[in-house]
Amino acid sequence: MTRSEFLTKYGFMAAAIISAAVPLAIFIFMALLGYPILTSGRLFGTLLGAWDPIHQSYGILPMIIGTFILAILAVAAAFPVCLGCAALVSDAAPGPVGRFLHGVVRMMTGIPTVVYGFVGIFLLVPLIREAFGGGSGFSLLTAALMLALLVSPTMILLFCDSFGRVTHTYRQAAAALGATTAQQFLFVVLPQARNGILAGVLLGLGRALGDTLIALMLAGNAVAFPDHVFDSARTLTAHIALIIAADFDSPEFRTLFLCGLTLYVLTTLLVLGVRLTMRLPGRRP
């Protein structure tokens, strides 16, 4: 091995190590800064209490719950639409139409989050306020609808990928037996693409959990536990954006790292889940 070759190889390796160190460093840094809370014996108070700084209560449970409800609501609203759309794009539509729609969906991934939030404020908020009298229009539902639109392209593209991977011969066999497109899709493609669909849902959840702007702009940011979907609520991400503290000794500052850690752990679990589903053996029809 020549000297330059040796150097390049280790140069590449160094880059890889740096890149891999970044997520580790983020975790370690957050854990270190959040450490005093973890050991102060107030961990459960902080995790499970209400947010009321005036009474020295810095609980983030309402935000954790808000995050979960919002993400699940958004993905649940997007799921049937995305599945249908993916079925059309990769299966039911004639070639050129399918390709065109696929292109449109890919372009949709490029719409900035803040644009969804902006349109949400001026279009969807008044609509929700008028349509469901009562409530300011800033609610979990409003944010969830916009978020559903945001995560849709990601989910559709993954669904399409997993439909595309379904072994072609199975479909041909079904077609030879006289199955219609619909039958082929429902009884051959869908069961085989199960893992891919699960992966798409998990990725959609991750995207929804991690989004800041839509929740911050549309969900209303109330610190109470939300009772129903028309309630104003705050997510962990919006909470971090709202509480900009700059001093190490304030409890607010510490709890931000608990929020960050919670988000980190949640998204990491989802990533692990996606990797796991990708590896599961597909069901054979």
């Binding site: 460093a25 991750g206 954006a241 960050g260 989802l270």
Partner: peptide, 10 residues
């Protein structure tokens, strides 16, 4: 998969 606000907080 990391939320951008977490990167920002970091």
């Amino acid at each position: 998969g990391m939320p951008s606000i977490v990167v920002g907080l970091f």
